[in-house]
């Protein structure tokens, strides 16, 4: 069984984002790029499955869509433990174009489980995984908080409104992964970093899929009114203000 984990690189989540060109473009100066947190958890879970011989998972690959400048992110995934990587050589424009590019990777290999993070922490789209499944005409399961492989079959726990469902789908399928899938992201050890240098990255050319949407402008959030402080000895006053001033209780 082979697992493919799709990884995106995003600004470090503590980045203070700034825009340039009259607020039409992200200012990338000084940004530290990291693996998208949910993708990192997907990769961690895939490696845990590989570590457990009973799952039959033999290989974990990663796929990334981006120019050569994003290879450090791929190397990081290889250092964490992925066996090999694919990069589709195109500047990502929107989720549709990225999903179309990832579909080329899936077609180029033999993958039983394809994992994507539920969203990226930059554009917060939650789109790529499900789009990829539709491009490939594969089943997809979203909001996965647990993934096991038993008797050659993936057993999935997905979150639904107000609860959880345990579901099975035939492979290959696209799994869209959320919090809970792995406890802590795995960190690269020195040995992994050394080994990553010699692991293969296959570069594919992008398919002819154009973006359907584009960001035309950005705006910072509206500043909130200053906080009104209430004396802790007179906490009841807060409830009075929430009732009569904010009118929310």
């Amino acid at each position: 069984m082979n697992v493919l984990v799709c990884i995106s690189n995003v600004p470090d989540t503590t980045t203070k984002v700034k825009f340039t060109d009259n607020n039409t473009r992200l200012d990338t100066a000084g940004i530290q790029w990291v693996i998208n947190p949910w993708d990192e958890l997907s990769l961690t879970r895939a490696l845990e499955l590989k570590d457990d011989a009973s799952t039959g998972v033999k290989q974990v690959s990663v796929a990334h869509v981006g120019p050569v400048s994003s290879e450090p992110t791929i190397r990081k995934a290889l250092a964490i433990g992925a066996d090999n990587a694919f990069r589709v050589n195109v500047e990502p424009a929107d989720a549709y174009q990225v999903a179309a590019a990832l579909a080329e990777v899936v077609k180029a290999g033999q993958f039983d489980i394809i994992l994507c993070g539920i969203e990226s922490s930059d554009y917060n789209g939650s789109n790529v995984g499900s789009m990829l499944a539709e491009f490939l005409d594969l089943p997809s399961v979203s909001a996965i908080s647990n993934l096991k492989v038993e008797g050659g079959q993936a057993v999935i726990t997905r979150e639904i409104d107000g609860g959880k469902e345990v579901v099975v789908v035939p492979s290959p399928f696209v799994g869209i992964v959320q919090k809970g899938i792995a406890k802590e992201p795995r960190i690269a050890a020195m040995r992994g970093i050394m080994m990553a240098r010699s692991k293969p990255i296959t570069v594919l050319e992008a398919p002819a899929a154009e973006a359907l949407s584009s960001f035309v402008a950005y705006e910072p959030p509206q500043p909130r009114a200053a906080c009104k402080f209430i004396d802790p000895e007179n906490a009841a006053q807060l409830i009075e203000m929430l009732q009569n001033e904010a009118k929310v209780i």
């Binding site: 999903a99 939650s126 789109n127 539709e134 979203s142 409104d161 949407s213």
Partner: peptide, 24 residues
């Protein structure tokens, strides 16, 4: 809705209908 169901259907629909998606 931008909830579990909407997030798992809308992107598929975007590809199926080749319709641009604005999510969230």
């Amino acid at each position: 809705a931008s909830n579990n169901a909407g997030k798992s259907i809308a992107p598929r629909l975007s590809v199926k209908l080749k319709a641009a998606l604005g999510s969230g």
